Computed example of a mutant assay.
Amino acid sequence: MIITLNDTSASKIGAAIVEARRTVGSGSGLVHTLICICDSSHFDAAFDAARDAARQHPSRLLMVVMTRSRKDKLDAEVHAGEGTPGDVIVLRFSGAMANHPASVILPLLLPDSPVIAWWPYSGPADLATDPIGALADRRITDSAADNDPCKALVRRATHLTEGDSDLCWARTTGWRALAAAALDQHPATVKSARVESAANNAPAMLLTAWLRLCLRVPVDRVTTDAPGISAIVMSTPGGDIEIRRRSGRYAVYRIPGEPARGVALDRRNVQMLIGEELRRLDSDKIFTAVMAEIHDEGIATTRDEDQS
Rank of each mutant, 00 (worst) to 15 (best):
N200G: 12
E258L: 04
Y253K: 06
S165A: 14
T208V: 09
Q307H: 06
S113H: 14
A300L: 04
P259G: 08
L61Y: 02
R194C: 15
I37C: 07
S235W: 13
V24K: 00
A260D: 07
S11M: 04
W210E: 14
I286H: 09
D126R: 01
A125M: 12
V18Q: 06
A117R: 00
G95C: 02
I3A: 02
H32T: 14
G262M: 08
I3C: 04
P149H: 00
A136S: 08
D184E: 15
K12N: 15
V154P: 03
T158S: 14
E258S: 06
A181E: 14
H57A: 10
R70K: 03
I229R: 05
T223D: 01
Y253W: 12
D52P: 02
H79R: 02
T172R: 03
T301F: 04
A226T: 05
D52Q: 02
T23N: 02
G14T: 14
F47G: 09
E196W: 06
E242F: 09
F93P: 05
I37R: 12
N6F: 14
D306C: 13
H159Y: 15
L62S: 10
V217L: 07
R268F: 07
R245V: 00
Q185E: 08
N147T: 15
A76Y: 01
A226K: 03
D142F: 10
N147G: 15
T224V: 07
S59H: 01
D87R: 04
T84G: 12
A289V: 08
S247C: 13
A289P: 11
L127K: 00
V31I: 11
P101K: 07
A209M: 11
D148L: 00
G133E: 14
A10H: 15
I13R: 07
A134Y: 06
T223G: 01
L178Q: 01
R245M: 06
N200I: 05
K191M: 15
A264H: 12
Y121M: 14
A16L: 10
R268P: 07
M97R: 00
A292T: 13
Y121P: 08
T158H: 07
I294T: 12
R261A: 02
F43V: 11
L183E: 08
G239L: 07
L211G: 13
G238Y: 05
L281C: 05
A193N: 10
G174S: 08
T173Y: 10
Y121Q: 06
G27P: 03
A134T: 05
I294Q: 01
E258I: 08
R216C: 09
S59R: 02
S69R: 06
T208N: 11
I116D: 11
A180P: 01
L106Q: 13
S165M: 09
H159F: 14
A204N: 03
R303N: 15
D52K: 04
M205W: 13
L61R: 03
L178R: 03
